[in-house]
Design a protein around this nucleic acid. Structure first.
Length: 270
DNA sequence: ATGGTGGACATTCCA
């Protein structure tokens, strides 16, 4: 049996609902994880998702900013939210899903703080927040959960492009927030701590450039191709052998009134 | 070195 999951920073779920509907009709992932929904829970378009076959939802939104959601064709159990850094931001939601013939999987959906412009925690509180948020994420040990009989998947907009090939120019972005050494080292440490596997790079060789985000500010995003890989799909080690494909839907950046991020889909076989 | 665009919300903040 296959199990598929998409992560997508949607930059307003209400504005982008027609694009989401079109994507779900053509790709039909079992689970959709959204970030930057920018939508309070009582205004979330649950009915529209239900009509598309996504009857199960774990949502965590707020007015104006941030917001994460898990929409699913399969039942979701044991849903939870965590308030990272005690700021009251809606940046994490999780739930357990059990694909047919597969293990129980806890899905963590994150929207990590972008971190502002200046990569110095002493003068930029947003950058300090980003690093503190990542430090708090280290408490998630996928191995610990595995030991209690449950596998893990971590997805979301982590706002960090860790590899040299995750940005259009390693040299030119070394001092740009999202690709600074302190961020990429912190992300790598977090990944090792939890024994997380970077499934996108399991499927696409690290030598190949791979982007999931292109700035709105570029005159022609396609021509200059100044992208970054800010969106990620990680899993506990036991799931990596079940991965069958990763699809980065680059064409979605060219849709009408697009998000600046594109959907990334992982397909597993159990 | 600078500003470019886009979304929400309220007349600015955030990315």
């Amino acid at each position: 049996m296959t199990f598929s999951l998409t992560t997508w920073n949607i930059n307003s779920v209400r504005l982008r609902m027609p694009l989401v509907a079109s994507f779900l009709k053509t790709h039909q992932p079992d689970v959709l994880c959204l970030q930057e929904t920018k939508c309070p829970n009582d205004a979330f378009p649950l009915a529209a998702f239900r009509k598309l076959g996504y009857e199960h939802a774990a949502i965590h939104g707020q007015k104006g900013y941030h917001g994460v959601a898990i929409l699913s064709r399969l039942p979701l159990d044991d849903e939870a939210r965590r308030d990272y850094c005690g700021k009251g931001d809606s940046r994490h939601v999780c739930a357990v899903v059990a694909p047919p013939n597969g293990p129980k999987i806890r899905l963590h959906n994150f929207y990590v703080p972008a971190g502002g412009d200046e990569p110095d925690r002493a003068i930029n509180p947003k950058f300090a927040h980003k690093l503190d948020f990542l430090a708090e994420m280290r408490a998630l040990h996928s191995e610990a959960e595995r030991a209690s009989g449950i596998s893990s998947i971590l997805v979301g907009d982590l706002n960090i492009a860790p590899l040299e090939t995750d940005v259009w120019s390693h040299k030119q972005l070394l001092r740009v927030v999202s690709h600074t050494p302190v961020e990429t080292e912190t992300l790598n440490a977090l990944q090792m701590d939890g024994a997380w596997v970077d499934l996108m790079r399991r499927h696409v060789p690290p030598q190949e450039k791979l982007f999931t985000w292109w700035s709105y500010r570029a005159r022609d995003w396609q021509q200059t191709d100044r992208g970054r890989r800010l969106d990620h799909i990680w899993s506990s080690a036991d799931l990596s052998g079940h991965l069958r494909s990763i699809e980065v839907l680059r064409e979605a950046r060219g849709w009408e009134r697009p998000s600046d991020h594109v959907p990334v889909t992982a397909r597993f076989l159990f």
